[in-house]
Structures are given as structure tokens and as C-alpha cells.
Design a protein around this nucleic acid. Sequence first.
RNA 1: GCCGGCGUAGCUCAGGGGCAGAGCGAGGCACUCGUAAUGCCUAGGUCGUGGGUUCAAAUCCCACCGCCGGCUCCA
Length: 639
Amino acid sequence: MEALRVRIRDKELQVERGTTLGEVFKALGIKDAIGGKVGSELIDLLTPIREDLEVTPVFREDPESLDIMRHTLSHIMAQALKELYGYDKVHLGVGPTTEEGFYYDVEVEGHTLSAEDLGKVEEKMREIVKRDYPLFRKELEREEAVKLFSQLGEKYKVEIINRIEEGETISLYGQDGFTDLCKGPHVPSTGMVGEFKLTHLAGAYWLGDASRPMLQRIYGIAFWKKEELEERLRFYEEAKKRDHRKLGKELELFLIEEEVGAGLVLWLPKGAMLRKTLEDYWKEEHIKRGYQLVYTPHVGNARLWQTSGHLDYYKPNMFSPMEVEKEEYFVKPMNCPFHIAVYKSKIRSYRELPFKLAELGTVYRYEMSGVLHGLMRVRGFTQDDAHIVCTPEQVEEVIEETLEFAVNMLKDFGFEDFRVYISTKPKDAIGSPEQWELAEGALRKAVEKVGLDYEVDEGGGAFYGPKIDVKIRDAIGRLWQCSTIQFDFNLPERFDMEYVGPDNRRHRPYMVHRAIFGSVERFVGVLLEHYAGLLPLWLAPVQVRLIPISPDKHGAYAKEVEAYLRDRGIRVEIDLREERLNARIRDAELQKVPYILVVGDREVENRSLSVRHKGEGNLGSMYLEDFARMLLEKVSKRE
RNA sequence: GCCGGCGUAGCUCAGGGGCAGAGCGAGGCACUCGUAAUGCCUAGGUCGUGGGUUCAAAUCCCACCGCCGGCUCCA
């Protein structure tokens, strides 16, 4: 019998081939291990040892243990479904773990699962957990496996088996009367799982392929500790409270309605004010940094979109054309062809480069109905777009400046935590290797110089050039894609863009597209969720709400205060309703207005204000002039 | 686009073959009030749209539109 060596920490053990990891741990007196790690690969206690190994035990404290336990829960869920709806009726797809739990894609013959079923399934799962069935693991030859799963009626599993590569082990896991094709790892018995809850139900194409059948996906979340599970559920509640669609309605910021059209946004007065503040700031910053602002049309001749290549590659996302004087026109899905037309309006010298054009350009894209989502995913949106045309020598500096600009602007909106992704050359790319090398090098150097960590998505770039994406982390930890800096080796060729160099010859420039917010609509959505609707003073559509205690007696003074503040650019609203003071304060609080000014006899007499701040509460009395000065100071500092 | 759920007053929602409801909001009246909801009265709905079943449809069935959760897509 062949002896194998297993190293665990400082211990080494000689074992027979086929001994399981669980047996090894037991022999070494290692208790409570959930599984083991070999390199970066997780194995479980049921896994037989076939070669010399160095194993690190995984305990409940280790984050990897969650993955093992969650995986078993997805099997327990599958068994529960089979027991409830019949072993021959439930056909299993895939059942992997997720970042916070697990799911299983299933098809239940003759029954469509609905939300009410989740409770039943959960109950059955708890039963299986309580019975504490031991799990078994088996290995099979391909033919045997195909035969077994064909007999079980598991058509999707058979398909998976046929996709497993030659030479790979085909393993089964199961408990009680349940067997599943599975790579593992698992906990050794159904009683060893943590706290869980089934959360929701959704459709999912088999293998993510729209031409394949649609299965039902049941999602669950799972943690070792009840508190962790509850914390996660609270997180969902919190996210729900911050939902920008809900806040947009409550704060009267925007409206999306059927009568106008799906995915088309109406900005209500308060939302429009917020947007204006944001856009004014954006424009000022761009002018400061040497960008030139332009305005371009909403539609363009088909020939333009032919030249740009959009009609060849992007047409499914474009709104249908309209005919104008026997020619086709398209509503723009992007601004680039127009900006290029601006660039090409005269011969450009190298002395003009880098040439930076910027526009808050509203584009329209035909998005599939199922993906629309509040302001985050719409059919008409405003890109904070810019195109930078430069020489090869300038590329590095341009990218660095652009990235630094983007990050600083996002910081001004209160975002501190950024994730940067660089996407490099894909297989079917255009452009020369030198171009790609220069561009990718510039992207890396820029990120490093700005001092950000980054991940590289090898081969994840567009065919026409590499890019940097910046994601921001919001107040409750979610990541949102915002900025993009994208090289384009395609359009300069297609549009035959040129500049005259110091050698008096014509050269092809480099061009980058870039956006900082990405889309103004989406960015406003992210801001609302980040701040839970309580926007910073400089962005708040209404900064001050004035409440005269008696509109009759104190209304005149309140109007005077209103005019004084408005003259100084402060966004102020006055509440003259014949309502109780408390009621009006409550309304202002619910509208999340940063400052509430109460004026009554005392204030009228000494020309002061009683100041109440959202969050800090009653701040006491201030003179009007002092208050205005303080407010303007805070606004200018973007507090 | 696909799967499932949902669509009732401006908003949040109840009702589920037999008279269309509540709270908030809106308008009116009274109260004249000092830091998170004063009371009373009134108006407001083709029950998403169209078709069908039925003596009778908000309610049951079909189609469409929209929304929600996902899948997919995002050169």
C-alpha cells in the first residue's frame, strides 16, 4: 500500500491513499475544522487524499468556511424542493454560493414556484438540518455518471457532466436519499450549517443563455451567526430606505411615468435645482482645467453614424431612425462623432493639443425593458462627456491629469473610497501593438501616480482601446461604476483625424473618451442613496425653510429674511401655511431641508433668527447677517 | 427581450363576482400656537389599457402597457 505524506502546519503524517481529510484531522487531533485549503483550493473532510499534500485547516473563523457551509445549504435546499415537489419533478441546474449566501437554479415540472413557496421550502430545509444527515461523497466514471443522472431525470446535470473536461474527477455528493453532481466542498453533515434565510426568487436562463430554457432561481443568504444574518437583513432594510426611487418621490426630485415613456426622466423643480448645482460646478471645474465646452445636436444624419461605425456595431441599442428629406437621421446614443466634427472643423496644429472638448450631452439608448431601473438605468441620459485629442508624447500626462481630475471631483461629492480597474487588450482588437502598449502603460502609470490600488481585467478592454474604470463606494459599502477613461484607436481612423506636427507633416492623434459621473441621472441616484436623501448643504435643492410662527404677525419679517437670503444666492423657501409650528417643522424635517429658521415675536424684535439644523437640532438664536455669512461659508467649502 | 410578482384617489395601501374604502396630502372653516402630526367639513377614482366570460367584473380569463426582483445585454 502506497504511503502518502500530508503536512499540516508543523505536523506531518503518513497516510494510505484514499484516506479522507477528515480522518487525517482526527488522527492529528485537529477538532472543529470545516475543511482544508490546499494552495488556494478548498477541499472538504470527505475528500480522499491521492497525493502528497500540504493542507491548512479551515475553521469557522476563516472566511472560506462560509463558502463550504453555504454550498451544503444549496444542496439542502435542493433536497427540500425534491421532497416537497417530487424527486422526479424537480430538475436541478446549478447551485453555487454567492458573496452572502447561495442559490439554486431549478425547474419544477407542473409547478411554478412563488414567494409563498419559500416559507415551505425553508421549513423543509430546517427539518433536514435538524435530522443532521451525514453527507457522502462518491466518484464516478463519466459513463456511470451520465447513466445515473439520466435515470434520475436530471437532464441539466447530464449536460454538465458532458462539459466536464477529460481527466477531471467527477464527484457526487448527497445525504439521505438525495444525490447531486457536485465538485464540493461541503460540510460533513446537514446539521453543521449556519443560520440561513431564503430571500427571493427570480428567473435565470440555463447557462445564462437567452436561447436556453428559463429556470427559477431561489436565493438564500447564510452566515454562521444569527447576528450576522440579522445584520445582513438590516442592510437590506437600510438599502430599501435609501432607494433613490422612493426618495425621488418623497423629495419631489424627479418623475418617470408611463405616459411619457419608460426610462425617460422628468426633472421636477427641486431635482432640476439639484442638477443645476451639480452641472454648474462641473462646468466651472472643466473650464478651470482647460476644457472647452460645446453643445451638439440630439440627432445626426445616418452617414455620420455609418462613418463612426455605430450602425454596424451599436444599432440594436439605438432608437429607430426618422426620415428627413429622404435621408435617415438617428437620435444620438453617443456624443463622440459630434465632438470629432468640432475637432475637424479646422486644421489642428500640435500646438493646440491636448485638445479637450466637454459637453453635458444627453444621449438616448434603446435599453431592453427589463433592465430599466429608476435613474440608474434609463433610456435618455446625460453623459458628462469629454474627448481629449493628443499626441503620443502627451498621452501619459493627459491620462494622469484626467484621472486626478475625476477622483478630486468625486471627493468633492463626499466619496472617499475608490476602486480602479484597468481593462487591457482583448483578442479581437484593432490598433497596433505599439498603440496598445503605450496606452496601457499610460493607464498603469497614471493610477500608480495618483496613488490608487487597481485591479487588471486582462483582455477586458473594448476592441478599440484599453480603459480605466473608477467605482465609488457609498455610505453603506456598495460599489457604483462612475468614471471611465477610454482610449479609442478606432474613431480617429474612421474619421481620418489629423494634426500638423512640428515637422509640418500630418499625424494621427490619440483620442480618449472620458466621463466622471458617467451619467448625470445615475450619479444623482447614487448621491441620493449615499446620503439617504440628506444632501450636503451645497447640493440641497432647498437650503433653508423659513417658518413664521404666526404667518399673519411674522410673515412680513419672514419675507424680508427670505429676500435677504435669496439675494445672496441662498436657496430659501417660506412656509406660510396656517399650521401648527410643530407640524411645519415636521414637514421641513421630512423634506430633509438642512436649515429651518423659526421667526416669532422675539426674532422680529431684534432682527434675529431661531436656527434649527437637520441633524443637530435647535441651535438657538443668530442674527440674520451672521447666519447668511455662516451658510455661505459652508456652501463655498462644500461641507 | 425572458421568468415570476404587482398595477385601486396626488402619495402609502385595504377590499377580491353584487353601493369604490382608509390614512396622509389638497381645498374650506375654526383654533393664534416657540422647535417632528390641532380639530371639523368638503372635493377627489372609467380600480393601468383593450377584449372576453357572466344577469352582474376592481374582483375570473386573454392580450398589451408599465413597475418590482432577477436573468441577459451594456461595440
